[in-house]
């Protein structure tokens, strides 16, 4: 901006020299220089871009994309392995649970068998003792019945002796007691 006055002077000089309407854009005397240097700039820039900058950026981006793809592949691999490990763990857990259940069932069956056996033994003992007790009760009852017949015979014999001593007949008394027992 500071050089504006100098520029003004040069500009006005140029305008005066060429008599153009004032627009510096239409001062055709400057066109060859502008076009020449534009061509130089474009050729230099095109060379630098197409030979150095763009291939380099393209390679860098490709390398980055490759690196990212590699990392993603690795992550996938790790995820797959983790899933496998989890599956194996679940399997082991299920196996262990099944085994535990089997062992528990076995133990239960064994205990049941022991309990059944003990019950059977107890039943047998009880019925044996019951039979013995019944037998003794019968013996006692028979003995008592026999004792009653003997007492009755004796009593009847004594009675007959006292009332009718001449009609003493032990055999007839025993038969009569037996008939009324």
């Amino acid at each position: 901006m500071a050089t504006e006055t100098a520029a003004d002077a040069a500009g006005h000089a140029a305008e005066a020299a060429h008599g153009s309407g004032g627009l510096p854009q239409l001062d055709f005397a400057t066109w060859p220089s502008q076009i020449f240097w534009l061509a130089v700039a474009m050729v230099v820039l095109y060379y630098l871009m197409s030979r150095i900058a763009l291939p380099r950026i393209s390679e860098t981006l490709e390398e980055r994309a490759d690196a990212i793809a590699d990392d993603l592949d690795k992550a996938d691999e790790f995820r797959r392995r983790a899933a496998e490990a989890e599956k194996a763990y679940e399997q082991a857990l299920a196996d262990a649970r099944a085994k535990a259940q089997a062992i528990a069932a076995e133990a239960r069956a064994e205990i049941q068998a022991q309990v059944d056996e003990a019950l059977a033994r107890a039943d047998a003992e009880i019925s044996a003792r019951t039979a013995e007790s019944e037998k003794r009760i019968r013996e006692i009852r028979d003995e008592a019945a026999a004792a009653v017949v003997a007492v009755a015979t004796d009593t009847a014999g004594a009675l007959i002796d006292a009332i009718l001593p001449e009609a003493q007949n032990a055999k007839a008394v025993a038969a009569a007691v037996k008939a009324r027992a």
């Binding site: 520029a7 003004d8 040069a10 500009g11 510096p24």
Partner: peptide, 14 residues
């Protein structure tokens, strides 16, 4: 001077 900024001038020699 809105158009003066577009004036093309040689940097060396004038």
């Amino acid at each position: 001077h809105p158009m003066d900024q577009f004036v093309i001038k040689p940097l060396f020699g004038g």
